[in-house]
Design a binder for these strands. Sequence first.
DNA 1: TAGCTCAGTTGGTTAGAGCAGCTGACTCTT
DNA 2: AAGAGTCAGCTGCTCTAACCAACTGAGCTA
Lengths: 237, 237
Amino acid sequence: MAARDLQERIKKLILDRRLASGAPLPTEPELMEHLGASRNSVREALKALQAMGIVEIRHGFGTYVGPMSLAPMIEGLAFRTVAGHSRGEDSLLQLLELREAVETGLVSRLAGRMPEADLVELDALVDRMEEQAARGAGLAETDRAFHATLYRGLDNVLLCEVLEAFWDAFHRVRTDLGGEPQDPKVTCRQHREILDAVRSGDAMRAEEAIREHFGNIRARLSTTAPQAPHTRHNERV
Amino acid sequence: MAARDLQERIKKLILDRRLASGAPLPTEPELMEHLGASRNSVREALKALQAMGIVEIRHGFGTYVGPMSLAPMIEGLAFRTVAGHSRGEDSLLQLLELREAVETGLVSRLAGRMPEADLVELDALVDRMEEQAARGAGLAETDRAFHATLYRGLDNVLLCEVLEAFWDAFHRVRTDLGGEPQDPKVTCRQHREILDAVRSGDAMRAEEAIREHFGNIRARLSTTAPQAPHTRHNERV
DNA sequence: TAGCTCAGTTGGTTAGAGCAGCTGACTCTT
DNA sequence: AAGAGTCAGCTGCTCTAACCAACTGAGCTA
């Protein structure tokens, strides 16, 4: 009766006191008294809130209002995808398609509307990508930065965070599953093409560039991942 | 040292045993033995996993593998939005823009590609919406169903769930904040227009219809929500 | 046979004790 | 007097042990 309630009451406490991210929460004993619950129950509620990113706990230091990032969503998405994959579903492909669908839809609104500063930054990122490809280094982080910078032009922090979360979840799962990275040279060329298309203001071409980029990733996926132990749909029921 | 680990080990247990959603997990005493931890620690780990939707706990019955839905994401998004709003940010508007950006991007791929069966279903939903509007009933649920059915044509379960999650979070926050519902008649007309556009296969018109629909919601938002109690940014620091 | 009761299982809650990480003030050395 | 080491005190972390509450199913009763 109390547990579900405790979480709500702690959330309410945060809202009522207008606590911003990073602000300190009452200590466990204080919460016990304030909420009239035992230490254990308070801790379980805090653990749940921590899992949702609402609260941040630092051992020996205190409890604080969390960064409210989408990190927990990444966690959940990644696990869901791994679990689905290990049961023979094409969950990783679905995650990739989700990214493709959203990004193709968004990139067309960007075409010709990017501030010059962002375009320059993207140029630098692709340059770095080529440099990394040349010396055989991984370019995952740079790829992430490219996509993040690209959609920054939409001027919606939440939207950017969501896209980054999708990227993170996908990347995490792909590496966990031991997927092969794609050909660095091809990846570089495709990013360059995306950037050129956006700069030129040709929405259709930008969309096509994104689609091709994802098509490449998808191709790599199907050569390694879809080990089909029992791919039959409707395994049960 | 143990706590963060316990969650991982329980997740690993689920993966190793290929447990599907709804499958029973070991009882708390069994987990205590298997993980070599106290009941308390096990419970805290389970609570965190429950918050992430990975596990489902039923009092007096047992613990089960969760539905892996995006419900926790809704929770987190909603709280984040409410918290931001109460601190004077336009977080609710950002959430709406996120939906608009994604849906406008997606609806164009649907134009002309919807199976007739889905179109008929959408017809029925708009009919119901008009009937509800006529007798003054709320049409939130029908609106939700409309959007859900619309994007079912994309044949990506994950994508649909994400969009529904966004809808839920937005709707929850808007009602929590006491926002006024929009004019039912206008809403009906706009949904009819979206449907007609998709049926006709005119991608541009479909996009425009979606945009107009969201524009309507946004207008309603700005007349009621942005009560600015202390809208000054940088209230502290 | 239909319904009830009760014992057993499962998770929920409380209590109290001790462990572990961090901070800041105090003390001892240089 | 300045610096480094120590220690007391906060903080959250883990464990044990007991009891409460929800649900199930077997057995009893009508």
